[in-house]
Amino acid sequence: MSPSIWQIIIVGVLLVLLFGRGKISEMMGDVAKGIKAFKKGMSEDEIAAAEAEEEKKDPPKAIEHQNTATAETRDSKVAQKKAG
């Protein structure tokens, strides 16, 4: 047996009287925020899983050793050029 339109209207009126329009509106806003946070979390998980799968297929290549001078070496070379 499904509820009639009058039963639904009576329940709606009772809810508005008990909680007030502002409280119901506030609760709906909180529910919407929760749904958005859930969707965002799910999409972040899917992105992370896709990145992990891509990394398994194509692991990062080894970085070749680069000849980089330290700050002290660079400073001493500059000083030698000025003095020389």
Rank of each mutant, 00 (worst) to 15 (best):
E55T: 11
A69W: 15
A62V: 15
E72N: 10
A71L: 13
D58M: 14
D45A: 14
K57P: 13
L15C: 01
A32M: 07
G29Y: 00
T70F: 05
A71G: 10
A62R: 15
A52M: 09
I5C: 03
G34V: 01
H65T: 15
E46G: 01
M42N: 06
A48I: 08
I35S: 06
G12P: 02
G41D: 10
S43F: 15
W6Y: 09
F19C: 00
I24E: 01
K40T: 07
E46A: 07
M42Y: 05
M1Y: 04
L15Q: 01
S76A: 12
V11Q: 05
E64W: 04
K61G: 10
K36H: 06
I35Q: 09
E51V: 12
K23F: 03
A79N: 13
A71E: 13
G84L: 02
K40N: 07
E51H: 09
E54R: 04
L18T: 05
M27W: 11
M27C: 08
E46L: 10
V13K: 10
K81G: 02
E54S: 13
K82P: 01
G12I: 01
A79F: 13
M27L: 10
E55Y: 09
W6N: 05
V16N: 03
R21W: 10
A71F: 12
V78D: 07
E44K: 05
H65D: 15
E26Y: 02
G84Y: 02
K56S: 15
M28S: 02
I5H: 03
A79S: 12
S25A: 13
I5A: 04
A69Y: 15
S4Y: 04
R21Y: 11
E72C: 07
L18S: 03
G20V: 02
K39F: 15
T68Y: 06
D45C: 11
E51W: 09
M27F: 10
W6L: 06
S76R: 11
G84S: 02
S76N: 10
E64Y: 04
I47D: 07
Q80R: 10
E53C: 06
M28F: 01
R74M: 11
